[in-house]
């Protein structure tokens, strides 16, 4: 399949382009997940804390709107979302192509997902513990900051890991229309120029990155969980 010349050729590309591509994928993923958490975490907290007015009094219509927006954004396929938000991307980044530009659609695709993950983490908390805090005179803000978040840290870390690996997948997909990184490399060389070896390596590094995030996430989640007896 590979004669030595194509092999040489491919190796050249791998050596010169892969390190940058890895870095681009890495930082886009981390940055996008970070912003998605900045937006998604408060939303998830609002949804749970506002539920039935148990912790925060939030009007039902407001909660309903948040819910609908999240569902709406989550139901648009990522590639289409990317095209739809082109105007916004241009407004924020100045261009729609390149690594930095892909952060915008990634954040918009990921924050509703993060909000749902946060919601599921926070719903795991024993309601009796929240009531206990209320019985001690905790304010809603104290309940969120001192009970809900700290008590669900292990679950939040696990879910952040799911979020980051999902964003990594999306970021590779964004390579099709202008995004940078390993996805772009795989598509440009593998799909358009039949350089399968380059594609193979790009995919290999994507897998390794997922493994890295996942192992790190699992490790941190376990380490942070004081409910486990062996700590």
């Amino acid at each position: 399949m590979f004669d030595s010349e194509t092999f040489q050729n491919a190796w050249e590309i791998i050596k010169t382009e892969i390190p940058l591509a890895i870095w681009e994928t890495f930082y886009v993923t981390v940055l996008s997940t970070f912003f998605a958490i900045i937006i998604g975490l408060p939303l998830g907290i609002l949804i749970v804390a506002g539920d039935k007015g148990r912790i925060l009094k939030i009007s039902k219509p407001v909660l309903r709107v948040i819910d609908v927006i999240i569902n709406l954004l989550r139901s648009v396929p990522f590639l289409i979302l990317m095209i739809v938000v082109f105007p916004l991307t241009r407004l924020i980044v100045g261009t729609v192509v390149g690594t930095a530009a892909s952060v915008v659609p990634l954040v918009i695709a990921a924050f509703p997902f993060v909000a749902r993950l946060v919601e599921s983490s926070l719903r795991e908390i024993d309601p009796n513990i929240i009531e206990t805090a209320q019985s001690m005179g905790a304010t809603p803000f104290q309940i969120i900051i001192k009970v809900m978040i700290p008590e669900s840290v292990p679950s939040l870390i696990s879910n952040a890991t799911i979020a980051i690996t999902t964003v990594l997948g999306y970021s590779a997909m964004s390579g099709i229309i202008g995004g940078g990184g390993l996805g772009k490399l795989a598509i440009n060389y593998g799909y358009y120029r039949y350089q399968y070896l380059v594609m193979f390596f790009a995919v290999l590094f994507l897998i390794l990155l997922v493994q890295l995030f996942q192992s790190l996430g699992t490790f941190l989640a376990k380490k942070s969980d004081k409910r486990l007896k062996q700590n």
Binding site: D126, N128, I129, E131, T132, A133, Q134, S135, M136, G137, A138, T139, Q142, K146, V147, P150, E151, V153, P154, S224, D225, K226, R227
Partner: peptide, 30 residues
């Protein structure tokens, strides 16, 4: 007033991610 009338429960309801000292500190922090 709730700091004046405290409560204990069948299920203990301790904060599982805080050690004993920090559990006792909790109402003081509040």
């Amino acid at each position: 007033q709730r700091r004046n009338i405290t409560m204990i429960f069948q299920g203990f309801n301790l904060l599982m991610q805080r050690n004993c000292l920090k559990n006792v500190l909790f109402p003081l922090e509040l």
